[in-house]
Amino acid sequence: MEVFLAILAGALYAAGLYMLMRRSIVKLIMGLSLLGHAANLLIFTVGRVTRANPPVIGHEADMLHAPFADPLPQALILTAIVIGFGVQAFAIVLVKRAYQTVGTDDFDQMRSTDRYEDELFK
């Protein structure tokens, strides 16, 4: 199982990085979100995938029975997903506004921040 998850995370990283390096800003967003998923999956995998009881103390018991799964990696992932949700929503809004204002979705055209002077003195 770990091997499969590791390959999957690797594939997600590859796909995410590939998308990041394209010139379109829409693909950039997809790349970022793929990177986020890859990171989450990786945390899930290194947090040890086991067949064990859920880490919840039942109504009758007053302590956990070993073997129980470690809940913390999942808590981390959950937090990361929530944060990723907010960040991506913002990134989409930003990209949309940028597309409307700059009038292109091509990164090669978005260099006025680095070529400020040429534009000013043309």
């Binding site: 809004v93 949309k96 506004r97």
Partner: peptide, 13 residues
């Protein structure tokens, strides 16, 4: 609040 702020402002734009 957050979700609706995002969705509404996206849809209104």
């Amino acid at each position: 609040g957050v979700t609706l702020t995002i969705i509404f402002s996206l849809a209104e734009g």
